[in-house]
Amino acid sequence: MMLLDGLYNSWFRPGLGRPPMPVAIVSILLVLTVLSFNAAGFTNSGAAGWLGWFFLFLLGGGVGWFWLSAALHVLAQLLGGIGSATDTLAAVAQSLWPLMLTGAANSALKISPRLGLVFSLGINLWVVANLVRSMAQEHQLPWVRALLCFGGAIVLAELALVGLILWPLMIALGM
């Protein structure tokens, strides 16, 4: 019951503060489960394939979480934010929960592609709004700066991703 309360508050009353650790873990696991089910369905994978996707997303999600948080934190500090790195990591983790709804969005795609796309777009906008709001809250930033922080962080994170791909290529081709 406490867990359900925690999840509800974390999802719909984020202003109450950071959720307890077990709630955050369950929330993240739910998102990972839904995303890996979607991917396994998309690739027509069996149980082993689903498990593979789950662990891949666990790994990829961890790396992505770190990159996005690092980029957001650097920019928040530059724009006058006062939160700690832990605050940023928590803010990002807490903001991603609407991704859990992608299972329903993918199902909606089967019924009506337009409905599914609108649903997916809505989920993405919800995540962005969550990120901007939680950055503003954790770092005590005005919402315009928090929005700038998010835009810049996306650019930085993408650049980091390009570097992540190019590095191994440089090493493989150059050696």
Partner: peptide
């Protein structure tokens, strides 16, 4: 009510995702 909403949301999301997995690739894509 809030617990019910949280539980319903979890069940619906998991069922939908499970359905996506068992149902395979959405046809209109």
């Amino acid at each position: 009510q809030d617990r019910l909403i949280a539980l319903a949301l979890i069940v619906v999301c998991l069922m939908a995702a499970l359905g996506n997995w068992l149902g395979g690739v959405p046809a209109p894509r």
